[in-house]
Every structure is written in C-alpha cells, then in structure tokens.
Simulated assay, not measured.
Amino acid sequence: MDEKLKFRFYRLSVWCGAVVLVAFIIAFAVVGKLNPPPSPTADAQQIAAFLTGNRTRILTAVVIMGIIAPLFYPFAVVTSLQMNRIEGGWGLLSMIQLTTAVVAPTGWLYPMAVLATAAYRPNRDPDLMLLLSDQFWLTYVGVAVIFVVNVAIIGVATIVDRRPEPVFPRWFGYLNFALAIILLPGVFVYVSADGPFAWNGVFAMWLPAFAFLIWKVAMIYVLLRAVRSHEHESLQPAVA
C-alpha cells in the first residue's frame, strides 16, 4: 500500500472515534432522552410510562448506535498501532488495549438492545419492563469497569515510552490513570439502589461520563498528533 494512503486511513480511523462520540451523545441524550436516567427506586408503573412515552425515541437511538458503533473498531486498532510503536512491535500492552477495546461497541449496543426490548411492545407487563430497564442500566453503567484496564494500559504505555520523541505526551498517561480511577466506582451500581454509587449517582454515572468526554477529546488529539509523527518517521527514509 502507498504510505501516504496508509496514513490517510489512519487519520480517518481517528476521526471515526469522533463520529462515534458525537453520534453517541446525540442518540443517548438528545434522541433517546436517557439523560438524566430514571431513578433506581422508580416503580414498575413509572418505568413503563417512561418507556412507552419515549418508545419511538429509544428505538431510533438504538438504530443510530447500531449503525455508528462499529466505527469504533478502526479507532481501537489505530490506537493499538500507535502503542505498537512504543513496544517496537506487537506486545503485551498493545494487545491488551486492542482486546479490551473491542468490547466497547458490544458494551454499548447490547444494553441498548435490552432497553429496546423493554420499549418494543407498549402493552408489555410493567414488571417485565422494570426488569429489562434494570438490566439495561446495571449493564450499561456497570460494564464501564472493563475499560479501567483499557485506559490504564494506555497510561502505562505512555509513561514507559523512552523514544526521543514519545508517541503520546506524558500528561496523557496521567490522564488515563485518572480516568481509570474515575471509572472504577461504576461496578458498585450492583449493590447501590440510591446515593452517589447508584446508576444515576455522581460517582457511578455523572463524573465518569464527563471524565470520559474529556478523555475522548484528548485521545483524538493525541492520536492525530501521533499519526502525524508516525507518517513523518515513515517517509523520512524515502525522502533521504
């Protein structure tokens, strides 16, 4: 493959991550009206009213994510390819990042498909709607703990990089460690029905959501920077 074309593909893969981020915000918060989430203490009638009243919006949001979420795969791969430069080839860190990142689209789509199931039939038993709604929020928020490993590994790779011109700036490594810590409380939704660790709480939902948004924008920035330096290194010998 032509080297310049290869790096165009790399940049396109980075921008795929931006498309997924924007589409997710639109689908989840604007179209689906899923922010703020319903209270874990809401009863079956309240949840049934929410699902039936937002049925079309929820189903449309799932369709949007079903179309856009697979674009996360190129983003995940180009991240591992840049970590590959740090390790001098495929190694433990780049492989862990890749294998944990491929969970992301499923981690979004599967819970949303469960919510679509709850909203799909408006005449469904409210208790069943409540059950499916609980499964959605517990899975959607609780599964974020998987990405603790993903972002922590990116942080480790950043800090151990000893190249004269590091692939990622050092501050980005510490940002990944911070996000890993912030994402960790999401696992406590399984034992919390109210308070800051519930699925609508500050430590389980809101703080991780805002931190993830900041991290994602930073990730796109440093990846574009890394691809640019990678292209420069690759084309230097040809120019010489």
Rank of each mutant, 00 (worst) to 15 (best):
M1I: 15
D2Y: 03
K4H: 12
L5A: 09
K6G: 03
F7S: 06
F7C: 01
F9Q: 07
V19W: 06
V19P: 05
V20N: 01
V22N: 04
I25C: 05
I25D: 02
I26H: 03
A27C: 03
A27S: 11
A29P: 03
A29F: 05
V30R: 15
V31S: 06
K33F: 00
K33W: 02
S39M: 11
S39K: 10
S39D: 12
P40C: 06
A42P: 04
A44L: 08
Q45K: 03
Q46M: 04
I47K: 01
A48D: 12
A49V: 02
A49S: 12
F50P: 03
L51C: 08
T52S: 13
G53C: 03
A61Q: 02
I64E: 05
M65V: 00
F72Y: 14
Y73V: 10
L81A: 10
L81V: 10
E87L: 00
G89R: 14
W90G: 15
T100P: 12
A101G: 12
A101L: 03
V102C: 11
V102A: 08
A104L: 15
A104S: 00
G107E: 08
L109I: 05
Y110N: 04
Y110H: 05
P111K: 07
M112E: 00
M112L: 00
A113G: 10
V114A: 12
L115P: 11
A116F: 07
A116E: 04
A118M: 07
N123R: 11
D125M: 13
M129R: 10
L130D: 06
L131A: 01
W137S: 02
L138S: 09
Y140H: 13
V141L: 15
V145Y: 05
V151E: 09
D161A: 00
R163E: 04
P166K: 10
F172G: 01
Y174N: 13
L175Y: 02
N176C: 14
N176A: 15
N176M: 05
A178I: 03
I181E: 10
I182M: 06
L183Q: 05
G186N: 12
F188R: 07
F188Y: 10
F188M: 10
F197G: 06
A198L: 07
W199S: 01
N200G: 07
G201M: 00
W206G: 15
P208F: 13
L213V: 14
L213H: 00
I214A: 15
W215H: 13
I220R: 06
L223P: 14
R225K: 15
R228W: 08
H230N: 06
S234K: 08
S234R: 08
A240G: 14
